[in-house]
């Protein structure tokens, strides 16, 4: 599949710097949106960098760009500010992963895309020790 760099570049603030927005009610929108529910005022917010594993799985079959990584762990992570993300859980023996486990976000390479071999970065989570 061919990915063009503008599409990648648009997501850099979220993927590299975890840029989100937070409503006065405390609700976090990640990624930020163009429109919000009526009456909701939002301010810039950086996602909490620590959280816990809400649920996880270990993939033995992956899409093309991730085939080399199998088996790898993927989780729904609830961050300490209440926001939730989907992220790979790395730097741990997959047999040791448990729900509720504390993790933190790290900046990592995710994959290479397209014929040009665009290097793609973003967040993964690692266990807190």
């Amino acid at each position: 599949m061919k990915i063009r760099s503008p599409r990648y570049a648009r997501e850099i603030p979220q993927r590299y710097r975890c840029e989100a927005v937070k409503a006065e009610t405390g609700e976090i929108f990640f990624p930020p949106r163009v429109v919000y529910p009526k009456g909701v005022k939002v301010a810039p917010h950086t996602l909490a960098q620590t959280g816990k594993v809400l649920s996880y799985t270990i993939l033995n079959v992956a899409p093309m760009e991730y085939s080399d990584l199998t088996p790898y762990a993927l989780g729904v992570i609830e961050l300490d500010d209440g926001a939730r993300i989907t992220a790979q859980i790395v730097d741990i023996d997959t047999a040791e992963i448990k729900t509720g486990m504390p993790v933190k976000i790290e900046f990592r390479k995710l994959r290479t895309e397209g014929d040009e071999g665009l290097l793609c970065y973003g967040y993964k989570v690692v266990p807190m020790r």
């Binding site: 599949m1 997501e11 993927r15 990624p31 809400l54 649920s55 996880y56 799985t57 993939l59 079959v61 992956a62 899409p63 093309m64 760009e65 991730y66 990584l69 790898y72 993927l74 989780g75 729904v76 993300i85 989907t86 992220a87 790979q88 729900t99 995710l110 994959r111 793609c120 973003g122």
Partner: peptide, 30 residues
């Protein structure tokens, strides 16, 4: 697997390496 994964959020699930079996596995674990 890739074509089916486009039924999920391509930028925030697919990009992270999610597949449909994986997403349903997350529901199963929960």
């Amino acid at each position: 697997t890739f074509a089916l994964s486009t039924a999920a959020d391509t930028e925030y699930e697919g990009y992270q390496g999610a597949t449909f079996p994986a997403l349903y596995a997350l529901m199963a674990r929960a």
